[in-house]
């Protein structure tokens, strides 16, 4: 009995693994699922995948069965050489070719129909985000202005449009739980739409090798009801809070003097750098270093003083700071919520 239960659990486990069921709670670091049905686009692609997989499996089984029958059947050997005009093998030839053509035609037509559905959403997306691929992080822009990095919110239950750009090498925007992937090509803006059916946190990554830290170029998409999304968007577009505590004020001065502002921007301050991610509401984000480490004080401190060990080759130099200055800087950054 226990063995049977184990088998049942194992089979259920395979189903889970293949994405038939997904009970796991989503977070920015939960594993992605290429066969997920959490979004309109992902759902279509998943259906195509299962259709092709079952068709191919069926063909495979039939062919292997026929092959085995042929191998083990005792009987007259088929004469060598080309098939003769009135040979008994001829009907099999027609049947094989005909069936193959029919199956391929059905899959082709079915795929074309799905592609047509995927080409454009039924309602025009009300929102467009501009995503710029960097080495190795994602600049999130809205109406021409950077509003976040490596993290964005979208309203659930409606299509959202993404305009994809790169100013360096080719990247690829891949959000497996919600949609397929699309390349970000320098000098050739691309476009992608997707829809999250349910609120949730989804993990994305770069799917085109783009340099030494390609593997650590991830991002997080948080789908939430329209009202919550609008609150987020308004907040994301707002300028940074003024530093409140004395420590944070000293930290802000250090940020401007140390050179941080040369690469990073904090809207509402003198920091207008455009090389690194914007930091206006840094502490409200879930992660650091392109969705690789949680955004906590300890990780932030380690990232500032030794970013080159955490993500070797990235463009942020490890900072030489006194312990005191580091604390002031942390106080300032943690106030940017």
């Amino acid at each position: 009995m226990a063995t049977i239960m184990m088998r049942v659990r194992q089979i259920a486990g395979i189903a889970l693994y293949l994405g038939l069921a997904n009970a796991q709670e989503a977070s920015w670091r939960s594993p992605v699922n290429v066969l997920s049905r959490k979004g309109l686009v992902a759902d279509q692609i998943s259906t195509i995948w299962w259709f092709l997989f079952s068709t191919a499996s069926l063909v495979f089984l039939v062919v292997i069965t026929l092959l085995l029958i042929a191998l083990f059947k005792k009987g007259q050997a088929v004469p060598k050489g080309p098939v003769q005009e009135n040979s008994s093998v001829r009907p099999i030839l027609y049947l094989g070719t005909g069936l193959t053509i029919i199956v391929l035609l059905i899959t082709a037509v079915y795929t074309f129909i799905s592609m047509r559905t995927l080409a454009a959403p039924s309602q025009k997306p009300a929102l467009t985000f501009e995503i710029v691929g960097k080495q190795w992080w994602w600049d999130v822009r809205y109406e021409g202005e950077s509003i976040s990095a490596n993290e964005l919110h979208i309203p659930s239950g409606e299509p959202v449009h993404f305009s994809l750009h790169s100013d360096n090498v080719i990247h690829s925007f891949w959000l497996p739980d919600l949609a397929g992937k699309r390349d970000l090509i320098p000098g050739h803006p691309n476009s992608l739409w997707l829809q999250a059916d349910e609120p949730g946190t989804y993990r994305g990554s770069c799917a085109e090798f783009c340099g030494v830290q390609h593997g650590k170029m991830n991002f997080t998409v948080i789908a939430e009801p329209r009202a919550a999304f609008e609150t987020w968007l308004e907040h994301a577009r707002a300028e940074a809070n003024a530093a409140v505590s004395e420590e944070a004020r000293v930290g802000q001065a250090i940020f401007m003097q140390q050179g941080c502002a040369g690469c990073h921007s904090i809207r509402g301050t003198a920091a207008q750098g455009e090389i690194g991610p914007e930091l206006t509401h840094l502490s409200s984000r879930l992660t650091l270093a392109a969705a690789n480490i949680p955004n906590t004080t300890g990780h932030l401190a380690a990232w500032i003083v030794d970013s080159q060990s955490i993500k070797p080759g990235n463009r942020m130099p490890s900072q030489k700071l006194s312990g005191e200055d580091l604390q002031f800087l942390l106080s300032y950054l943690m106030e940017l919520n």
Partner: peptide
Amino acid sequence: LKHYGCGGC
């Protein structure tokens, strides 16, 4: 340890 980032330093 992973959450607080001890291993970063």
